[in-house]
Amino acid sequence: MAYLTEKFGSAGALHLFAGAGETVAVARVPAIKASAKNRSKKASHGTFLYGLPLLGLFFLLWEIAPQLGWLNRIFFPPLSEVLVAWWALLASGVLIEHIGISLQRAAIGFALGVVVAIPLGLLMGRYWLFEKVSDLLVQTLRNTSQFALLPVFILLLGIGEESKVAITFYSSVFFLLVNTISGVKSVDPLLIKAARSMGTSDFDLFRKVILPASIPSIVAGARLAVKSSLFAVIGAEMLAAKSGLGFLIQNSQLMMETADMYAGILTLTVIGLTVNYLLVWFKRWATAWKGQSETSLI
């Protein structure tokens, strides 16, 4: 909301220029936007560059601490050994296979979450009776750990893919649902009034006004949901699976192949970072109309 106020505020300031001749205002709009963009770019570059030395130090310590005997290299192999193991896993195709399986499980669960949560959230956000009736159940389910339910999913759906998809679905659906509801509730009532004044039908009101107006909130929820379903799939694979990155990490630990274990963990980190950047990019693209200057990558 603070962001919106800022936007309206700047639009208000532009009126001052508009009086002198509208073309002046026109010329100013891109200038103001461009400077905001530069500032955000500078800030995000800064974060990356400033952060590099400390990350470098972390990797350096990882390399030399086991080499110098500060850490037991059986439990904690140096980074170079981990990278060699990682390359071997990659070259043999094993790693790609595990990655593919994990991502597939997470993606199917997330996609089901989207299909269920968005229509449901639109209704719950719009019709208060709908929300009043279902809110307690949603809160109850939402506050039950997905991992506590894994045994239930396995009992109901078996040890195969279905139970993994169920846990990723469960992990993503509530983030999507809660954010869709709050997005719908924060739609400017004036936009709904304007739409109604033009004779918009109820169905079009959802499709053409409430849904697009809720997109920023839904996308924010989707970011949390994607992360949550990635975490959940790894957890589930560590507890009960014969494939996937979680299985690879857990199994390598049991076999005392610690270099492979760290290779698996590093892979997860890289996937997490990549997905996060993709989601940030997607958010910028989907909400470009806000002319945003968001820099947070968290």
């Binding site: 639009a11 220029f17 508009a18 509208e22 806000k290």
Partner: peptide, 19 residues
Amino acid sequence: FGLAGFEDRFPNQLSGGMQ
């Protein structure tokens, strides 16, 4: 309304009078 050329602007890229 004298806004030819502004077809692709989003509302927050327009002054209050233009909006």
